[in-house]
Design a protein around this nucleic acid. Sequence first.
DNA 1: GAAATTCATTTAACATGTTAATCATCTCCC
DNA 2: GGGAGATGATTAACATGTTAAATGAATTTC
Lengths: 177, 177
Amino acid sequence: MARKNSNDIRPGQGDDASARRAPMREFSRSLPMSLLRAREAVMRQFRPSLRNHGLTEQQWRILRALTAVDEIEVTELARVAFLLGPSLSRILRDLEARALIERKAAENDGRRAVVSISAKGLKLIEAVAPTSEAIYAEITRRYGARKLAELHEMLGTLEASLAGMNPTDDAVAEADE
Amino acid sequence: MARKNSNDIRPGQGDDASARRAPMREFSRSLPMSLLRAREAVMRQFRPSLRNHGLTEQQWRILRALTAVDEIEVTELARVAFLLGPSLSRILRDLEARALIERKAAENDGRRAVVSISAKGLKLIEAVAPTSEAIYAEITRRYGARKLAELHEMLGTLEASLAGMNPTDDAVAEADE
DNA sequence: GAAATTCATTTAACATGTTAATCATCTCCC
DNA sequence: GGGAGATGATTAACATGTTAAATGAATTTC
């Protein structure tokens, strides 16, 4: 019951008009896949160290972001650390329970919460930072500082290119609500 | 109880030897962050369409990978679709329940499972593919085909550069087990 | 100035990421 | 050929991603 074009590797790039139906882009060439693989290759280097210090990647992102400011509102923190609200909410609860951060209500707006890193949190950051920086230095050495800067720029450009793209709401004919 | 260097934006890049302790790389310049943001910018375009067809990003990755082969073992599928075993295991269970894939035991090895896409799965792929391709085309148009190819290459090089890097096992002095 | 609306945050629910442990089968070796 | 160890896959447990809904507080509207 399962049968398709059984070509698995190297479909020939672009000028093979042999298939019945355009066989779509080869899988490994998809942009999301390339980005995912690259990011994983990088994160694989950092995770063990973070883990040794009892931090996940996201927790580290939050603490890192907090060291750059005196205090910050939750929404802004979500933007800076690139986390969705619900994820951030959960992580802040945990970090607060571990006394790595502190939280208080905004002065003139009971809805907003203001977060800051604690002394304990700062100490943790300082413990992790050297290893983290060493890893980053090694990555830079291997890949090349210039190339790394270029990659950063290209990624930024890509992000900017897609900024105003409206999410192609393709039809399914079944609207419900 | 919370106080730090209150510089939040633009620390000056590399030659500000003013801080007490190297303030680490500015957050938005971290490579994992750049890759994450870029990937999210891309995926944001695809998710709505996939969602309209009842598929998550990972489910789509798996079905896509299955269209390229007649059948494939689970481990190999995990490698190709870039998913961890446990994730794949759960997703396959779901896709099988929805009759989008089929699964059987390998002929000469009872441990291995062989997976293939079903006719229903193929039909679904064919329904999603046009929109997916259109989005990809628009991304290519906006960013530039040449630049896109260059980005792909740089990402691949990055991945290769880090391939042999051993996961810097930093000391924590407290080994427990 | 009370109801309606908007806004910031959290909770809920489900899917995946991540590591460790389990389970079953296979291989190898004595 | 039987047991130790290796291997493929799943399950377990916890953290996060993702969307929707709920909660609580500010703002607007009439």
